[in-house]
Design a protein around this nucleic acid. Structure first.
Lengths: 237, 237
DNA sequence: CCAAAAGTGTTGCGTCTACACCCATGG
DNA sequence: CCATGGGTGTAGACGCAACACTTTTGG
């Protein structure tokens, strides 16, 4: 088999990249990491960080590597999940390139480092990145929109929101995450009840944090649960 | 740019396939289409239908083509959506092959035709395909499990269940779909209320179908809505 | 009349929203 | 004492599971 099979594989070879939609919450606002491309095509245009999948490298491994190259953060400490593959034949002017998009959620991410392929990288509010007067390279705007929608719905029925919060955190910190990602205000009382009732979402540390003004808030850390039951639904408005 | 860029693409070339988890409901049971492989590797082993993505062919186009080659059905008439990409480096013994998995849902699918790469193809109950005494080629068992879970949750908050029903259909037909996919019985009364209250899920035709025994049932066709509100949740049991 | 399937009513339970109210702290 | 944010109580609306009950057909 081998010779014939390998020859068949070669004849059908394409190129595969990974692209990352990395979200974080800063100043009560959802932001994403974008790079300004240093090479053609789309030189000088904003794009999602990403790069080629290396031979012998798994897709998840490639995503972790790119994440670490672009942000200096160990990707295994962040929430990282595959979004989906994008493979329109004309999505890359260089030829046939399929990309596998990933969604990463983190907190306290450092000022990004410019990689080999990127002149500069910086955190940009997602709302700005998706506004009509910003153009993104390739089909990255569509990817970013899909990633945002995925993140929004994941907050409903999983506990990933805690990935945005540096430990230890308060219930209000967590609420600010929901408010930033959903771009909607939430009732503090009811939010608190739901979040504390759901088992395994957050666990109290016994410590408190005293704000500049007001009653001290209990501190929590992330629990074991991945799923959130009952779910925290967005209002239908 | 072109020469250098193209050379770079070539150097990093991989192979990409699409694989299809095609579901249908027959005899009140969820079934999937599997082929018995005619070539190495995994010759004689059951596998999901699929094949190589051709140069210049979009991923969705490749999925539609494979679907039509394997089932003879025009894929654009079925519900077809991408699941995700699978790219573990050792998932194919021939070398580096990434696959993009698709989920297809249909009704009245014909007896399948054996393709070039498949000795035979047939509908198999999903429960059997996932049972411990059936082995699937490559990582297709994991893909099939993911596809099943996706289909199950899609039934909750979208109207895709109607894709399983040949038009016109009764409320009981639709309920049998939910019961087959979720592998759980549902209360006919409450199911009927939810399904008819949700706007745009099913619309009455005015016709009736008289069963061998019992009161005639109104016939419906699919509505316009893609999303199902309020959602039809699985019981937590 | 009976069996079977379609369809309606009703009750009880739980959850959510909205908002009033109390608690703990710094100034 | 006040302002501010943390935290609890509660009433009304709503949704849903469970199940009794009625309707419509063929035999």
């Amino acid at each position: 088999m081998t010779n014939k099979a390998v020859a068949m594989l070669r004849a059908r070879a394409l190129t595969v990249t990974v692209d990352l939609a990395i979200f974080t919450v800063r100043q009560h606002e959802l932001q994403t990491l974008l790079v300004r491309r240093g090479n053609e095509p789309f030189r000088g245009v904003l794009a999602l960080p990403g790069g080629f999948v290396r031979p012998g490298e798994g897709l998840d491994d490639a995503a972790v590597r790119e994440l670490s190259e672009e942000t200096g953060v160990n990707g295994r400490k962040l929430h990282l999940e595959q979004l989906q593959a994008y493979g329109a034949p004309d999505r890359d002017p260089r030829g046939r390139v399929i990309t596998v998009a990933y969604l990463a959620l983190g907190h306290g991410l450092p000022a990004p480092q410019a990689g080999t392929d990127a002149q500069a990288a910086d955190w940009i509010p997602v709302a700005s990145a998706l506004s009509s007067n910003v153009r993104l390279a390739f089909d990255h705007e569509a990817i970013l929109r899909d990633a945002l929608e995925r993140a929004r719905s994941k907050l409903e029925y999983t506990t990933v929101a805690a990935a945005f919060c540096p430990e230890p955190f308060t219930v209000a910190d967590l609420r600010h995450v929901y408010e930033a990602v959903w771009a909607a205000p939430l009732d503090p009382s009811n939010f608190r009840r739901k979040v504390t009732r759901a088992t395994g979402f957050i666990v109290p540390t016994g410590q408190f944090r005293t704000p500049e003004i007001g009653r001290p808030a209990p501190l929590y850390r992330r629990g074991n649960s991945q799923v959130l039951f009952p779910p925290l639904l967005r209002s239908v408005a």
